[in-house]
Computed example of a mutant assay.
Amino acid sequence: MTNITPQPLMSYWDYEDGNETITADSFDSDSAYDDGGDRPVEDLTLLSHERANVCKYENGRRYHRYHEGQYAFPNDNQELDRMDLQHHISNLVFGGKLHFSPITTGEGDPSPILDIGFGSGIWAASMAEMYPHSQVIGVDLSWTEPIWCPPNCRLEVDDCEHDWLYKKDYFELVHIRYLNGSIRDWDRLFQQAYRHTRPGGWIELQECDIELYCDDNTLPPDSMLLEWFVLINKAATASERPFIKTQHFKSWLERAGYVNVKDKLFKVPINRWPKDKKMKELGHYEIMNIAEGLEGWSMALFTRVLGWEKDDVLVYLEKIKKEFRNRKVHAYWSLRATYGQKPMDSST
């Protein structure tokens, strides 16, 4: 991997007592957007304080406040650490690949890459290290902790469901990972991605189905795990951002205009139940991921939508964690990588 001296994208955070907000004070003053959307991506800078400087605390967890409520999951240190663990799991599942799209390297690196929902920033930073001459742009609804990135990686605060103001026919790759349950209109998102992908460029999604699968009937139909999935899907659907089945992505990308769409399906065991050494290791990390993530995945949806009290959610989730650890249940998640290409003869 190329050695690149990282640079800070934020130098410090200010914490304001009494109103549970957090303010970042080290952003560039230039706007990241212009009215026409024709400014090259190289000219974009970090967004203004009005978007980047507010977060909120709720039930002991930190959430974004810019376009509040669109993303139901926290952005605090606990969640950022879990995201990094999930990135490690993805690397294990994908054999170390950051992407499957055959993006063009040629004599140099690909043209700019866009990461939708950068989270902790680890994928964007890793891509920037892999392709040191390519510009990597990350977009998310909030700043979180200070993030150190290679100099060719820029992270911005914006809402991917609003109109994109990037240059059209521009990106070599648009990458979307782990946003299931956070998007209201996938069709519109894919249409925007298509518009801003260069001819011959790619889109890639890496997403989990939010339900459990079992091939040997060891998951009983009255399992509390299945009950939890029903509840969280009910809450997400009521929030108009349902968890969708990833098998639909292929046809949806084709509907948006992409061609050469490929689908790769992987299994991720929920704990160390497999006999296979590699799958057992994967299950070891996944049960850690579940233990760290279960509260964050559930708390806002259960309290805001289903009307539960915080303490009731915590007690319930302890029971669910115990069920996840049960090695007699041979259950797994479905993780899917779906990628497609914008036709070479197409331009926006």
Rank of each mutant, 00 (worst) to 15 (best):
W143I: 09
H175V: 12
T144E: 07
H99F: 02
K167W: 08
E161I: 12
Y166S: 01
E161H: 01
E145D: 07
A128S: 07
A128L: 05
V174L: 01
Q135A: 02
L141A: 10
M130W: 08
L173N: 02
L114E: 11
D163R: 06
I103H: 03
S111A: 07
Q135N: 14
D109H: 06
D115K: 15
F100V: 00
Q135R: 11
I103A: 03
V174I: 15
P112L: 10
H133R: 15
P151M: 10
V93R: 11
G106Q: 06
G119V: 14
M127C: 08
G121A: 15
R154I: 06
Y166H: 06
P112Q: 10
P132S: 07
G108R: 12
D169K: 05
Q135M: 13
H133F: 08
T104G: 07
V157S: 05
V174W: 02
L173H: 11
F118S: 12
D109P: 01
D158C: 00
I122N: 03
K167S: 03
T105L: 15
I122E: 08
N152D: 00
V136F: 14
G119R: 15
I113F: 08
A125P: 05
H133W: 10
S126K: 15
Y170H: 07
S111N: 07
V136Q: 06
L155R: 00
V157G: 00
V174M: 02
C160N: 11
M130V: 15
F118P: 05
K97Q: 11
V93Y: 01
Y166D: 01
I122Q: 11
V136W: 10
G95I: 06
S126T: 14
G106K: 03
C153Y: 11
I113W: 08
L155K: 00
G95E: 13
S134C: 03
Y170N: 02
H175P: 01
K97H: 15
A124G: 07
I122R: 13
V139M: 14
M127K: 04
F118V: 11
Y170P: 04
E172S: 06
E107A: 12
T105G: 05
G106D: 09
K97Y: 12
I122M: 10
P150K: 12
G95R: 09
M130F: 15
L98F: 06
